[in-house]
Amino acid sequence: MASLKRLETEFPILDRDFQSFCALRGIFTVQDFLIHDLQSLVADAEQQTSSERFMQAINQVLCVIDGLHRPWSNGVELMEDAQKNKHVLSTGCEGMDFLLRGGLHKGQVTELAGPSSSGKTQMQPIVLQKVMNSILCQSVFDIFSMFDVLHCLESKLKSQMCRGDNDEILIIIDSISSLITPILGSSGSQGRALMVSAMSLLKKLAHEYNLAVLVTNHTVGGDGGIPKPALGESWKTLTHVRLLLSRDCGSDTYHVSLLKHPSAASGKAAKFIINN
């Protein structure tokens, strides 16, 4: 998330005095602002000599936060947008496309979860061959680097939209769990807030720029030892679509089951073959 210091260039009201006021309360970024007690921050600001200016700065940060998330839409507007703009991209596997009602839907985030060697990585080249003429890869090793890449992509998409030129149709984040798990284990509520912010940004990109988003996740042991997607209960509510992938030991046969879909019943399953 953007630091308050970086925002000062665009919003001079967020000057050094305000940054120092926030720093004393552990607030250095927009993310820190999100998880801080707003009522407490406002009460402290009102006690300062520059209280009026600090209150204006707080309102400015709130406006920045509002701008990071798409506005509320009613059901009719969402339906019209889905019918006119949100199409599907074939995964290249008939069984998976059948489960997904055509493939990966633009405007949605699809999660593909599975244990090691279950086929998550093998699926990606198949999807890419079907939907992309050019591929740009970015290596990131922590969630903050991912935020930087996604914000740069957002700036690029805004520029392309102004020119009426948008070539990007798919974002793939391979092993998003490897970026999120480290922050969940050590930072408590802040880690969860970062996780939610990451998904909010992916949903925003998907919706506003008509993209399909595919993220992969590993699995952990569930009830009775049955594998389930990692990242906990909070995470499972965030994605639009969830798929669980597995592979027959020693064969090229893969099984996929539908755990969640906005317009299809969960529990359906299919199988397919990937020839190595």
Rank of each mutant, 00 (worst) to 15 (best):
S257G: 07
T9R: 14
I172Q: 02
G114P: 06
K86C: 07
N276M: 03
R163Y: 06
S234E: 13
V61L: 15
V30P: 04
S251F: 06
H261Y: 07
D97W: 08
E154A: 06
V149K: 11
F11H: 15
D167C: 06
F18V: 03
A23N: 10
G191S: 10
S175A: 14
K120E: 04
K5E: 14
N276T: 06
H261V: 06
K130C: 11
G222M: 08
L170S: 05
S251E: 09
N59T: 10
H36W: 01
S159M: 11
R247S: 04
G191I: 09
M146N: 05
H105T: 11
D148A: 15
G164Y: 07
K158P: 00
R70C: 02
L202I: 03
Q108F: 12
R101D: 15
K156S: 14
L150Y: 06
D252G: 01
G114T: 06
V256G: 02
V88Q: 09
P125G: 08
M1W: 01
N74R: 04
P125V: 10
D66W: 01
S118H: 07
S90N: 04
Q108Y: 13
K203E: 07
I226E: 10
L184K: 03
H36E: 06
P182S: 11
K271T: 10
V64S: 01
Q83E: 13
G26H: 02
Q129F: 08
L112W: 03
